[in-house]
Amino acid sequence: MEAEKTGNNTGLFWKLFTAPLGKNNPITVLVLGICSALAVTVQLESALVMGLAVTIVTGFSSLIVSSLRATISPRIRIIVQLVVVATLVIIVDQVLRAYAYNASKQLSIFVGLIITNCIIMGRIEAFALANKPWLSLIDGIGNGLGYGIILVIVAFFRELFGSGTLMGYQIIPESWYIVNGGFYENNGLMILPPAALIVVGLIIWVQRSFYKV
């Protein structure tokens, strides 16, 4: 691919890294990896952990598959990729259970679902199989972060308007609430699953008007 021809230079690294954050965002533009993305966006904290976990898995699976790409027999290509991804996901899951128990409880099955996250297989197939390991690592991390950013934006709005908190800390002053004689009430709809879809739809609207895609 073109990345091979231009070789290694900082500009290329930078481009690979930043494109997925905005213009080529995996969620809003390429529409990949939405499956596990939305269910974990009720709270900002779990969205951050999920974004980080996915970034680690996309980065390293791209790195590993790209290093192995000359040796993989085409007949077992998909299985090898799945095994690499699944192994990384299990390691991430085990580490979360040991060092971030609460977050792993909240994410429950969605950690396991990182395996079937289309972003990971998508980047491996489209990029890592044809490019050098370091480039693939950067590409993987960039895409993971692009995914994480959308998660965090969605979670920001859902937690702020749904529970009045951010990262668990109260943001909306207690005295505003109707129960305390104020005028404000949390929007219960934001906590429910469908709100995530509507928020993502609106983000896509904003982003596409901005980039004129």
Binding site: L192, P194, G201, I204, W205, R208
Partner: peptide, 23 residues
């Protein structure tokens, strides 16, 4: 449909509305 919302955007919003109905 407004141009930037066409395709994926409106599909998300519709799915959200369907989800509310299913709730």
């Amino acid at each position: 449909v407004p141009t930037p919302l066409r395709g994926v955007g409106i599909t998300f919003i519709l799915t959200g509305l369907m989800g509310i109905a299913f709730m």
